[in-house]
Design a protein around this nucleic acid. Structure first.
Length: 348
DNA sequence: AAGCCGGGGCC
DNA sequence: GGCCCAGGCTT
């Protein structure tokens, strides 16, 4: 094999690669796909428990396709980027309708499914089927920008195009599944963002960043932009049975499709809204807290309306429901809302 | 090309 | 508090 890059990487993988990840046993398409989607912008250590719970509840693609959306979102709750779960669900249903209940084995057909881009499609083909397709995720971008000494933000189209060419050139035709895992493992455990362990790297001998002492500069970072702050009042309407009123969020915006607390822009609006849903006597202001998203920070002021009496007609609205603490577990809730409700249940 | 979409871990 | 992480979709 003239491909010394892949050969060195595979030799390293045989000694130091990760072989105990749950989606490697068995390494089949549905599990690889699920892991890839969960791992989009979420770290391995966080994903493992979610993955095992998810495949425990929905072991096959057909199980996923047949599940209702609340079940899928509940299994996803806490992972974030909930659109990923909705795409996953829809893609599974498309596979049942169009591909005999299996993921297609063609790149274009995979990319045509919602939530699967070129890199995720490549990972599925390479890992599950041993087909020679490159991937280009955050780990591979870091390894390649350093190895080839490529400057600039890897998110820029021109830089990314260059990286795809390198990724393609390095991918071997044998042991593709192991190679794909190997280059991700190298990025995750050796060629890490800060203080990479170059002394342990099989590619160090001809790595440009290593040679020129540029590992701290590469990969280039995009200019940081400051994020705005928004505010909201969250209504905790609780009845005499300690059930809380939840409202399903719409299809647009953050937390789409999740069950959350009714919201108002200010305390006056909160009172008006609360009175539409229930008869109430008093409100208790709870400590405000901040939740940070990637693109803005949200100041949350919780307002507890205890011993509320539901107005008639609420039960007829499918977007509203009174929930006991037990029922919360079966629903997809935003992480800060889940945390808030657990705290209130403990202390009030 | 830029904006949108969560949450957790780490320093 | 800033930054990053097995990205992809929409505008």
């Amino acid at each position: 094999m003239s491909n010394t890059f892949a050969r060195r990487l595979l030799r390293w993988f045989d000694q130091h690669g990760r072989t105990d990840l749950p989606w490697q046993h068995p390494r089949e398409a549905y599990r690889v796909w699920l892991s890839e989607v969960m791992l989009q912008q979420t770290q391995v250590a966080t994903v493992v428990a979610y993955f095992e719970r998810f495949v425990g509840a929905l072991p096959t693609l057909r199980d996923l396709a047949a599940a209702d959306e609340d079940t899928v979102l509940a299994l996803w709750s806490g992972l974030g980027y909930y659109r990923r779960a909705r795409f996953l669900h829809r893609a599974a249903q498309l596979c049942v309708a169009q591909h005999e209940g299996e993921l297609p084995r063609e790149l274009a057909a995979l990319i045509a499914l919602p939530g699967i881009g070129r890199s995720t499609a490549g990972a599925i083909l390479a890992q599950a089927h041993g087909l020679r397709f490159p991937i280009l995720d955050g780990n591979v971008k870091r390894v390649l920008t350093r190895y080839h000494g490529i400057h600039g933000d890897p998110g820029q189209a021109a830089v990314e195009k260059q990286l795809w060419l390198h990724a393609e050139a390095h991918t071997p035709s044998a042991r593709v599944a192991d190679y794909t895992q190997a280059i991700m493992d190298l990025g995750a455990t050796v060629c890490v963002r800060s203080s990479p362990r170059c002394e342990a790297c099989p590619l160090a001998a001809d790595c440009v960043a290593r040679r020129d002492d540029l590992t701290a500069q590469l990969p280039g970072r995009k200019a940081t932009k400051k994020i705005p702050t928004r505010a909201t009042v969250m209504l905790v309407l609780r009845d005499s049975h300690r059930r809380v009123l939840l409202e399903r969020r719409g299809p647009q915006g953050v937390w789409s499709g999740l069950w959350s607390l009714p919201e108002a822009t200010d305390p006056d609006g909160a009172w008006r809204l609360a009175q539409q849903h229930a008869r109430i006597d008093d409100a208790q202001t709870l400590p405000p807290f901040t939740h940070v998203f990637s693109h803005y920070r949200l100041n949350i002021e919780p307002l507890l309306f205890d011993r509320a009496t539901a107005q008639h007609g609420i039960a007829d609205n499918p977007q509203l429901r009174w929930c006991s603490a037990d029922e919360l577990n079966a629903l997809g809730l935003p992480a800060p809302v889940r945390t808030l409700l657990l705290q209130i249940n403990d202390t009030h």
